[in-house]
């Protein structure tokens, strides 16, 4: 028995060693391709600390919290931009939810019998959600010009893809009895969806939409990086122009907003899901 134990242990050891060796080789290869070696790493990691130190200093060298008025001098402008950002996120979520809502019934296996239609809907949703939204935003900025419009459209497309898939999964998990009842009573496809599927899935849909809104607020905050509106524009400018105190102020505002939105939507979602049960 001892021998068997020793054998089992050594086999596992060998596997772990093999895994570790592969890991090391991968690390070495990646470090080579991305031109990061330990010397560079330690030489440059210090400047990160420096940078964060400077983020917390005003132009006159004082710590930022010694003069809040000076730190948040642009609060009026920033809150307007932040408001824009929230609206971009809202519109993107709203329009995207409508799109995802319409497509999810087509992509659901239990409601759409046509294979071709389902396949097309699924591939379309996949394409929408795999391309990062900032790439869409870059392309749309060229097509539609600078401003909030390309940002909204980019977020919308990504939301259609993400929500369409989640919604379709919800729809596939519904209780089929009402659907059968509606079909038996001669309901058309739209009537079946409206009276048999919709009442079952609506609370879940609303909850996912809220969750998506939360994610989209984060997404909308960076849309300005490529000229697609919102607070990102000011953030990118102050980072590029080395206005350190502004950077930390805007970051704090964004983080605080994201946290508040998280809390609010979480509350709402718990109530929604609670109401459904």
């Amino acid at each position: 028995m001892m021998r068997a134990y020793a054998q089992a242990v050594s086999a596992r050891r060998a596997r772990v060693m093999l895994g570790a060796a592969i890991l090391l080789v991968l690390i070495a290869m990646s470090a080579r391709t991305s031109e990061v070696d330990l010397a560079v790493f330690f030489a440059r990691i210090g400047s990160v600390g420096d940078y964060f130190d400077r983020l917390l200093r005003l132009d006159n060298g004082q710590r930022v919290w010694t003069d809040l008025g000076e730190w948040f001098w642009g609060l009026g402008r920033w809150s307007r931009l932040l408001f824009d950002t929230l609206l971009i996120a809202y519109l993107g979520t709203f329009l995207g939810a409508i799109g995802g809502f319409c497509l999810c019934f087509v992509a659901a296996e239990n409601l759409t019998k046509s294979r071709g239609l389902r396949f097309a809907a699924r591939r379309f949703l996949e394409a929408c959600r795999t391309v990062p939204e900032i790439v869409f935003a870059l392309i749309f900025v060229v097509a539609f010009g600078l401003g909030a419009l390309p940002g909204v459209l980019a977020i919308m497309i990504h939301t259609v893809g993400a929500m369409g898939k989640l919604f379709a999964e919800v729809v596939e998990n519904i209780d089929m009895n009402p659907v059968e009842g509606a079909t038996a009573a001669g309901a058309s496809w739209t009537q079946t969806v409206r009276f048999a599927a919709l009442p079952q899935v609506l609370p879940n849909f609303a909850s996912y939409a809220l969750l998506r809104f939360e994610i989209n607020v984060r997404g909308a905050a960076v849309m300005g990086f490529v000229g697609a509106g919102g607070i990102g524009q000011d953030l990118v400018e102050s980072i590029r122009k080395f206005h350190y105190a502004d950077v930390s102020a805007i970051l704090l505002i964004i983080i605080a907003t994201v946290m508040v939105i998280d809390l609010l939507t979480e509350r709402l979602r718990h109530r929604l899901i609670g109401a459904a049960r």
Binding site: V40, R44, V48, Y51, F52, I239
Partner: peptide
């Protein structure tokens, strides 16, 4: 902006 452009 802290460590410069590039993969690092």
């Amino acid at each position: 902006s802290a460590v410069g452009l590039g993969p690092f």
